[in-house]
Every structure is written in C-alpha cells, then in structure tokens.
Computed example of a mutant assay.
Amino acid sequence: MANTSQSKKRARQADARYDVNKARRSRIRTYLRKVEEAIASGDQTAAAAALRAAQPELARGVTKGVLHKNTVSRKISRLASRVNGLAAPVV
C-alpha cells in the first residue's frame, strides 16, 4: 500500500489512467467489430466505410499509448487486404 503522499497520488493517477485506457480499448474494439461484421456480411462498401472510420481510432490508440504502433499497422493492413479481397471474385 502507498505510504507517502506522492505514492498515494501516483496510485490515484494510475487508477485514473487505467479507466481512461480501458474506455479507449473498448472504443477501438467496437470499431474493429464493426469492420469484422461488415466483412462477414460481404458488403464491400460498408466494410470500406467501417475501415475508414476505424483507422483514426486505431491511430489515436497509438498516440495515447494504448496500443503499439506496429500492432495497429498490422491490424489495418490485414483488415484492408480482407476488405479489398471482397471485391475480387474467389477463383
């Protein structure tokens, strides 16, 4: 348990950051779920629109320190290739 006033303050700040970051992660997951649902429905225009809406949220997660830059880059790349794959007929 925190003893000094500074360590008590840092504990309070850590709790506040935890709540904020938890909300950010939840918001990002919601956007990703919308993209996944649009891809599953097979509607490329809806999937592309959902991906365009999700990209700034993911980028914001990087700047706020919630997600790593390479993780977000990988997620966007994989989602974009799946969205683009909806247009091409499967041979």
Rank of each mutant, 00 (worst) to 15 (best):
V20T: 04
R78L: 08
D19Q: 13
A80C: 05
V66A: 12
K75R: 07
V72W: 07
G65S: 12
A16C: 02
Q6H: 14
G61L: 15
A50T: 12
L51R: 11
R82T: 13
P56N: 13
K22T: 02
E37K: 10
E37T: 09
E57A: 09
R29V: 00
K34H: 00
I28P: 03
K64D: 06
A46E: 04
A48E: 01
G61D: 10
R82W: 05
D43I: 14
V83P: 05
D43W: 15
L86R: 09
I39L: 10
G42M: 06
I39G: 00
A38F: 04
P56A: 10
A23E: 01
A48Y: 13
N70F: 07
L32W: 04
A53L: 14
R60E: 10
K22W: 02
D43N: 15
K22F: 00
L32R: 09
A87V: 07
Y31A: 12
A11D: 00
D19I: 11
A48V: 08
L86W: 04
K34W: 00
Q6P: 08
N21W: 01
A2D: 08
Q6Y: 11
A16M: 08
V62H: 11
G85M: 04
A14P: 03
A49L: 14
A80V: 02
K9A: 03
R78E: 13
H68E: 11
R29W: 01
K8M: 03
K8V: 02
R27G: 00
N3F: 14
N84Y: 10
S73A: 13
R82H: 04
S5Q: 11
G65M: 11
R82M: 09
S81K: 13
V91F: 05
A54E: 05
P89W: 03
P56T: 11
V66E: 08
S7Y: 03
V62D: 05
S7Q: 15
I39A: 05
N21M: 03
L67S: 10
A40C: 04
A47V: 10
I28G: 00
T45V: 15
Y18L: 07
V35L: 05
I76Y: 01
A87L: 05
R10G: 00
N84T: 11
K34G: 02
A48Q: 15
R12K: 09
E57H: 12
V72F: 13
A46F: 06
R78T: 11
A88G: 05
A14I: 00
Q55P: 10
V72R: 09
R17E: 03
L51G: 05
R24G: 00
T4R: 15
R74H: 06
A11P: 00
G61C: 12
V91P: 06
G61N: 12
R17K: 00
A88M: 03
L86I: 07
R52M: 14
V35F: 07
N84M: 10
G42N: 12
